[in-house]
Each structure stands twice: as C-alpha cells, then as structure tokens.
C-alpha cells in the first residue's frame, strides 16, 4: 500500500471511531431514580432536578417503589377497581404529596407539620410548588409500571402532570446511559 492509501485508511478508521464515540457520549442530561416516598427525599430530589433544569439540562425522573405513592391524587380515589391486596396497599400507602412521612423525626406526623412550618417561614417552596415548577421546566417523570402493579396503584388515580409516562426498567437504563449525571434517591 502506498503512503497515501495508508493515510486514507487511517483517517477513515479514526472517523469511524469518532462517530461511535459521539453516538455513545453522555449528553448534558440528569437522570434520577427516585425510590424514597419520604417528603424530605422528594423535596431534595425536585430541588436538584430544578437546579439542573436551570442549567438547560434535560431531566428525567424515574419513580419506583415507595415514590410512586407520592404521585397519587387524593381527589381521584373514588371508584377505583382494585383487588383486596390493592385496596390494602391503597389504604396503607400515602395518598399524594400531602400525606408523605419524613424519613427522620417524623414523630407520628408532628415532625412533618413542623418542617412544613419552618419551610414556609424561610420562603422554601413546598413539594407541590416544586412539582409545579418541574412541570413548567419540562422535567419528565417516568413511573415504574411494575411498582404500580405490585402496589395496586392505578393510572386513573395519578396526578395530572404534563410530562408523565409509564415505563419499565428497560426505558430507564437507556435514559441513564445517555445522561452525564445519574442520581439515585
């Protein structure tokens, strides 16, 4: 092979490798797996998500296990067709953001009321306000369908959130794979 042909082949090989690298390079995105259904963890999660949104990062939040109960709408609890176990879970799990426990110092709900009072005093946004901001900034919420099945949570009882989808782990691993930052709460 002449020198020229060798060079040409080298350049082609390099181009191919650059293209592959570009395809697999993580993008300026934040992917969050939210498992906790505790008020404090959820507030922290949404604050981080909104911070990233302020940086023009795309944000995807994957809600699984206990976190899914936080997305239930207390106004949509009538006429849900659930089996016995689903009904039991339905009663035992918090119905939406207003009923979430604190991970520490819950004190049968007293800590919960206290932290809400302190937050208001300091001008901190409530979880409901943070979720409204999240909707405005296009933050996507993906709900784990298996968690919903296990706990008998129905789509009809979920909050009206504009960027919500129902997915499995397959979708989320793909989203995580393309994100520069991945968090798990």
């Amino acid at each position: 092979m002449s020198d020229e042909a060798t060079n040409e082949k080298m350049i082609q090989d390099l181009m191919k490798r650059v293209e592959t690298l570009e395809e697999n390079a993580p993008e300026d995105k934040l992917a969050m797996g939210i498992m906790s259904g505790d008020l404090d963890y959820l507030i922290a999660s949404f604050i981080v998500a909104l911070g990233a949104a302020a940086y023009d990062m795309e944000v995807d939040m994957f809600f699984t296990f206990w976190a899914t109960a936080a997305l239930r709408d207390p106004k949509k609890q009538k006429n849900l067709k659930k089996d016995a176990l689903g009904n039991m879970f339905g009663m035992m799990l918090p119905t939406g953001t207003g009923k979430l426990p604190l991970s520490k110092m819950h004190m049968m709900g007293m800590g919960d009321a206290m932290i809400k009072g302190v937050m208001k005093k300091h001008g901190a946004k409530s979880l409901e306000e943070l979720m409204k901001d999240a909707a405005e900034f296009g933050i996507r919420i993906h709900v784990c369908t298996m968690s919903m099945d296990l706990m008998g949570i129905k789509r009809e009882e979920m909050i009206d959130y504009p960027h919500m989808s129902y997915v499995g782990v397959g979708a989320f691993v793909d989203i995580f794979g393309k994100a520069k930052q991945c968090w798990f709460m």
Binding site: I47, L50, A54, M119, G123, A124, K125, F137
Partner: peptide, 13 residues
Amino acid sequence: RGTACPGPLLDAK
C-alpha cells in the same frame, strides 16, 4: 428576596 433555594436561580432563569 424572601425565596429560598432554588427560587432565586429559577427566577433568574
């Protein structure tokens, strides 16, 4: 003023 994190950053954005 009077809003806590992440309020000011979001307001700026």
